[in-house]
């Protein structure tokens, strides 16, 4: 696999001091999990892993280094690299400080979907192959186990990279899109659905903190002056938080789904920012994180923008 190559690259970069740190994944503290790791010496690069469970968006981990002068390499799947592009465009980092090790992404597997289909699972029963895995004496395609955002992913290849490890991949962009499923329902059904989802929210803010693009020093959700919402996870305040967050991500969300995967209550919370991206794509022909020259869609306008809704 590409794991060896990733380790070699990371080692090389650290040895020649091209970078001070490498941000990557290492094995998790639970089965079927990979967790972010920070490597600063060439010897430690052996702990790096690359598999179907490398789920957190590593661009999030750049943010603490915003005010340092360290040069950082990070492993980047398609969506991680898109988030880096947005961060660069928003001038959070100078381009020279970031070294992107691009990884064309085979998709992240949802542990929940594995459990749903295969029952109780143990790591040692799995044997991984190029496009699937063997388990319980059967060969399985990974497609039906992918995270929802990965099923609809149109950009598995990093749009920006300094090194690319692995073959470029076809975009999946499946037609059975879960956004569409919801859009086809009636207004009342949709509200019922979101009420169910949003009322489960405990407002732990894991979704916000896992998002590489929610980097405000003070989020409106916790601001004291003015106080927009209370700390009690009621339906109204939960809705306010998620609506507000999605609006703040308009034209910035890179559809990585990190927010949704972070949610301990398994709320389909990524749907909101994703929907906003769809609106922006359909109406303003814009997708975030594809090029450094792009102009943020809400920081610009056209004279013929949609305006029928205004009297």
């Amino acid at each position: 696999m590409f794991e060896q190559e990733i380790r070699r690259k990371a080692k090389e970069l650290l040895e020649v001091k091209a970078v001070d740190l490498v941000i990557g994944y290492t094995s998790g503290s639970l089965p079927f999990q990979a967790r972010p790791t920070l490597v600063s010496s060439p010897e430690d690069t052996e702990q790096l892993v690359w598999n179907h469970f490398c789920s957190p968006n590593l661009a999030r981990y750049l943010l603490p280094y915003r005010d340092s002068s360290k040069k950082i390499a990070l492993l980047a799947k398609g969506c991680d690299a898109r988030a880096v592009v947005v961060l660069l465009r928003e001038e959070q980092f100078p381009r020279e400080r970031i070294h992107i090790i691009g990884l064309p992404c085979p998709g992240i597997i949802s542990k929940r979907k594995l459990e749903e289909k295969l029952g109780e699972i143990k790591e040692e029963d799995f044997s991984w192959e190029e496009s699937g895995f063997l388990c319980q004496g059967k060969k399985w395609e990974i497609d039906s186990f992918l995270e929802d955002t990965c099923v609809r992913c149109r950009y598995p290849n990093p749009p920006l990279w300094d090194d690319l490890i692995g073959e470029k991949r076809e975009s999946r962009g499946s037609s059975v899109d879960y956004l569409e499923r919801i859009s086809s329902q009636s207004e009342e059904e949709r509200w019922q659905f979101f009420t169910q989802e949003l009322s489960r929210c405990i407002r732990c803010y894991a979704c916000r903190n896992a998002c590489p693009l929610c980097y405000c020093k003070e989020c409106f959700a916790e601001s004291d002056v003015p106080r927009w919402i209370s700390g009690v996870p009621t339906l109204s305040d939960n809705s306010f938080f998620h609506l507000g967050r999605s609006i703040h991500l308009a034209g910035r969300c890179v559809e990585c789904g990190a927010c949704e995967r972070a949610c301990p209550e398994e709320i389909k919370i990524g749907l909101l920012p994703l929907k906003v991206e769809e609106i922006i794509k359909n109406s303003f022909s814009f997708e975030a994180g594809l090029s450094l020259e792009e102009e943020a869609p809400l920081l610009t306008y056209k004279e013929n923008d949609p305006g029928e809704f205004i009297k």
Binding site: E187, R190, Y301, G307
Partner: peptide, 28 residues
Amino acid sequence: YFARRKFFVLHELLQWLGIEKDRVQFSW
């Protein structure tokens, strides 16, 4: 013009969530 884009997004999103979008009106 900037406002128009912002409100458009908000309006569409509210409607998608099933919140009556007629409650929020815009005019020039």
